[in-house]
Design a protein around this nucleic acid. Structure first.
Lengths: 362, 362
DNA sequence: TTGAAAGCGCTAACAA
DNA sequence: TTGTTAGCGCTTTCAA
């Protein structure tokens, strides 16, 4: 309500001088600075960032496109992202697509209309040409999180090494003698990149052991508890039920645990179970559940810093950073009586790091 | 990048005419409208909402202050809120406090600087005078969700009938013969209103049955799985261990289940268990867990519509709406062998609706 | 070191 | 029915 003019009038100076004082212009007399500060305090003046942005050509606002905030991992990402960006003076404009790829596209347009300085993309489907077109049209600083768009060459990216993680987890299970691995994840509405990489790692593990691909893979549209439960039931009811199950995080894991509980199948002793994200429940569960861990906070902080670099430094080239995934082996897979002990074999290639990616690429 | 001037030039009209066409001004010739639309399409023009907002004095943006988006209930609220507001043409600026009441206050100032048209408050601590001062200074359309600030008389509110729900749940347990009820919730960093009301309902239930208050109440600072587990352990290790446990949602519930599992205490047969929110796990669990349900989507939609009413209709008085809570009784409480059958008694007042609040108040 | 003036992109009042 | 003009609140030349 109080504008810069009122402050100027009260301090007996010109509006431009108020700006100079507040923005730390080098040439201001101590006398004027003091008068301005006093007026500012008396009036409780806070500059209008929208007006300033219009003039400066920068809004100090970042758009964040998310597929579905109900997913706790995404919620955490948004949380840390907001913290990092806020401390750099940026506000976060949120656009959720609720699992609808069309909203991904519309969000890009809407955020662009709001003059965002940068964009973080955690969309539903990064594979549509409409989205590629919209992002190209936008053309500003962009970071893709756990998504890959080859058609977009001037965007930064933060990826987790899902393929490597999946490979390690599957190798762990194959090493223990498992041959039938059930694989349940909510991939249809979510990142294509993550799904593709996880599956590739799984395939590679069988390949490394010179075994035929023995996984039954179920991809659910949404990562809900009911879908997790149903997919688990489907696995258990199949002709060749798995001796080990790998399941997506959060509600999917809960759903799987519920179905196993109903059938009185004990995790660890009757079946091996592992989770694709190291969520709290995995650690709390008795027995503790083997899981892949990635540092979501670091993913978010990296995304923020890549974006800030692009927004503040003109010359910054977009970069893609791949962050590591760790396998945390716990009792849910280690206490299992070896299912096919007579068929033990070792990896044909000695190094399990064969496909390890470099941690950063230009 | 393309401004209204370029559109005007291409269409051979004045900029103001472009505005008129795009904003549906009544007096525009079909001829001009067509030329403008064509130019708009050719250039892919989308008006700059920031500039329009500066001129109009309205930003079509709403600020949302949240305590912690990690909480799935809050995530869902934000999700539905965003949907409702977006379809009314508003963008959502998110400000998370990460459990720090000071950030609540700072967020109000920051959002104000960004010229928001309205504010949704789901802050960490609605009880500080600093926040009251900041909100009063802001003075625009405001909706408090599950929070109550008496000092603020021109804000709308959406509340859930937590007291009534808690009363019903506790009555249900007392009716079954339980006398020692363990009560675990993460209230310290979160809404004072919710905590206060839930506790009041619990107290009232004992009162209605003319029984001495027999609950052991544990308030954890954050609603984490580990805190839920630890509080449950504390209850079970106490001198008078409870025969029934009431626990907060999500991770708190998971934590409680874990601790009971570790001790081989079977839910339903060895102990009664109920949850303060009807989260998916409560329904999936075997046996299904008795829970209080509120429609979070409706809470969010109500908040959105109250805010929209205040933002669009000048004369709208702020309102507070109380939405119902339902008790869903499931096997986790009904299969329990009555713990103190020799001490059965009925409620002294016949109506359990004694404290039922009216569903809406001015 | 400070003030006056112009302008960011849009819209609304006024004039034609 | 349409064009011209002024101005939202701020910042940035330019001039003093």
């Amino acid at each position: 309500v109080t504008s810069i003019k009122e402050v100027a009038r009260r301090a007996g100076v010109a509006p431009s001088s108020v700006t100079r004082v507040l923005n730390g212009h080098p040439y201001v007399s101590a006398n004027m600075a003091e008068r301005v500060f006093q007026a500012v305090n008396e009036l409780g003046y806070r500059p209008d960032l929208v007006a300033a942005g219009l003039r400066r050509g920068t809004s100090k606002t970042v758009g964040v496109i998310i597929s579905d905030i109900i997913n706790p991992s995404i919620a955490q990402l948004v949380d840390v992202l907001e913290t990092s960006l806020r401390s750099a003076g940026y506000g976060v404009l949120l656009a959720s697509s609720h699992g609808d790829p069309k909203m991904d596209v519309e969000s890009v347009f809407l955020l662009r209309q709001r003059r965002i300085d940068g964009l973080v993309v955690m969309c539903v489907d990064e594979g549509t040409t409409e989205l590629h077109a919209a992002l190209t049209l936008w053309g500003g600083p962009t970071v893709l999180v756990d998504r890959q768009i080859d058609e977009l060459d001037d965007a930064s990216g933060v990826l987790s090494a899902h393929r490597q993680g999946s490979l390690r987890l599957a190798s762990h299970l194959l090493e223990l003698g498992h041959r039938q691995i059930g694989f349940v994840d909510g991939g249809l509405l979510g990142s294509r990149y993550v799904w593709r990489e996880r599956l590739a790692g799984l395939r590679q593990a069988y390949d490394d052991y010179d075994l035929p691909f023995g996984s039954m893979v179920i991809q659910t549209p949404r990562a809900t508890g009911e879908n997790g439960r149903r997919a688990t039931a489907e696995l258990l009811d199949s002709d060749a039920p798995p001796t080990a199950i790998v399941v997506g995080p959060n509600l999917m894991l809960s759903g799987a645990l519920v179905e196993l509980g109903r059938r009185q199948i004990n995790v660890g002793s009757d079946i091996a179970l592992a989770c694709l994200d190291d969520v709290p429940v995995a650690q709390l569960h008795q027995p503790p559940i083997t899981a892949l861990r990635r540092d979501i906070g670091e993913v978010a902080r990296t995304a923020a810093s890549l974006l800030l670099a692009q927004m503040t430094q003109e010359a910054t080239r977009p970069r893609t950073v791949v962050l590591p995934t760790e396998l945390h082996i716990r009792e849910s897979t280690t206490t299992f009586v070896r299912p096919t002990a007579n068929d033990r074999r070792t990896r044909k290639t000695p190094s399990r790091e064969a496909i390890a990616e470099g941690l950063t690429t230009g």
